[in-house]
Design a binder for these strands. Structure first.
Lengths: 160, 160
DNA sequence: CGCGATTGAGTTGCGCACAACTTAATCGCG
DNA sequence: CGCGATTAAGTTGTGCGCAACTCAATCGCG
């Protein structure tokens, strides 16, 4: 349990390097492709994520958005302020709970969806994967994220 | 080739949302686990990437590091300055080419490798994947990154 | 009802990531 | 040799991502 058995530590480090690099490179490559595809919409990748949930719900609290895109208010507040400045959303405090802020699509923000419809196919084409493979990738990444999030702040020390 | 055939655009947008979210969530979950594991080393994840290549080469130019970790000088310059301030590396201009800066591990930086040896196994444990699955993941991510990078700045418009 | 605990947003500070730019050194062609 | 083009690093500015914090509103227990 505490000895590698199959590999010396040095090779572990090498494998880790390869996985780190692959993950890091894939993430930034994806970001780059999205950046290019989103340029004409005037959106960044994280802004696109937020718009995607708003196109499905039209109106959500900051907390509601945060739960769906897994971002906290420290990231969302300035991002939403920029989306508001761009005219895509409106923000106003909720009447029934003055702590909460309701974010709602403007007409313009809702209309932007039409221009976004072509984006997913471009991305899919860039990956060179078909729908089934994309679905499989999504599954694997989702399962991985769930497992990694579950580890949380503890653990990690319990295996050395 | 230019029509979806299998899915209307709206479902494409939904699938894209799911893939976006999975990718984004998995990336940040990975970062979180590494952040935790690297805390005792006093390294961030990108700093760890740089140290990994230096542990293999001992001495590299900024350009050489950039090629290996796929980062430009705009990101590396301040990062390396911080690694230098932490005492892990030295930087000095190359004698034979005054444009180039050579980055070399200090004794302390080289010694840090010993403390890093336990990191990969912790990460692997957190993912819940075995060595074969990790290798497979690495392969897929690498292939994907290569394909996405190959698309480059052009294309993307040629499929709409 | 009153008051401490909790919750939702926002702010601050730091470290990437990247585009666009600057500066200095080197290259290479005529 | 001379000078424009290229190259290597660094700088600047913008936008995430996250930890740590503030502040106001709400909750809930006695």
């Amino acid at each position: 349990m505490e000895t590698p058995d199959t590999l010396p530590e040095g090779d572990f480090l090498r494998l880790d390097r390869q996985i780190c690099f692959s993950l890091h490179a894939a993430t930034r490559a994806f970001n780059g492709v999205y950046r290019e595809a989103l340029k004409e919409l005037g959106l960044t990748y994280p802004q696109y994520l937020v718009m995607l949930v708003l196109w499905e719900h039209r109106e959500l609290s900051v907390k509601g958005i945060g739960e769906r895109v897994r971002l906290d208010s420290g990231t969302l507040s300035p991002l939403l302020k920029r989306l508001e400045a761009a005219g895509h959303v409106e923000r106003r405090r909720s009447p029934e709970d003055e702590r909460s802020v309701t974010v709602r699509l403007t007409e313009e923000g809702a209309a932007l969806r039409e221009k976004a419809l072509g984006v997913p196919r471009r991305i899919a084409a860039a990956t060179g994967l078909d729908l089934a493979e994309l679905g499989d990738l999504r599954e694997r990444l989702h399962a991985l994220a769930v497992r990694l999030d579950a580890v949380g702040p503890d653990d990690l020390s319990g295996c050395a």
